[in-house]
Amino acid sequence: MTLDEISVLAELVRRRSGVVIDRDKTYLIETRLAPVARREGFTTISELIGELQARRNETLMWAVAKARSAPVRIWSLGCSTGQEPYSLAMLVEEERGHYPGLKVEIFGGDLSERCLEKASSGLYTQFEVQRGLPARLLVKYFDKIDDAWVLSPRIRQALFFHPSSRRQAA
């Protein structure tokens, strides 16, 4: 695994579970993921990571095609400050032309209510909108308000945010 891949995975684990993997504990990733990679028919963990990144959007659109007229509900768990559910909402919007009558509801859930608050605001800094978001989609789906970028209402209305922790506590 490259250092980049290790930091991608460590960041993913941190965001999803709050578990911080120290640099000197990267063997944890190796030992846990190597059997998974082998089971799924990949020779290395790197191959598995590449496949996962390439497959997310494909899998979503496959589900959409299967659903036909039924609404598709997507649950983005551990959505942190909302980048993933909003990306999915933009992807759906981009593909809408191919699927007339498509109904998609996207739910974002996270343990951190502070993250969810930021997610539902749809507000991002200039720094944030430049990571993993094509400029073409930025100008198409965001408005600029002072120094911040805010997602347009047509994207935000497809999303619901849910504090997963509060429900478990109740």
């Binding site: 200039q126 400029a135 073409r136 930025l138 100008v139 965001f142 408005d143 600029k144």
Partner: peptide, 11 residues
């Protein structure tokens, strides 16, 4: 230059 108009022109 960080306004949507400049970005759209560049693209």
């Amino acid at each position: 230059e960080n306004d949507p108009d400049h970005i759209a022109r560049a693209l």
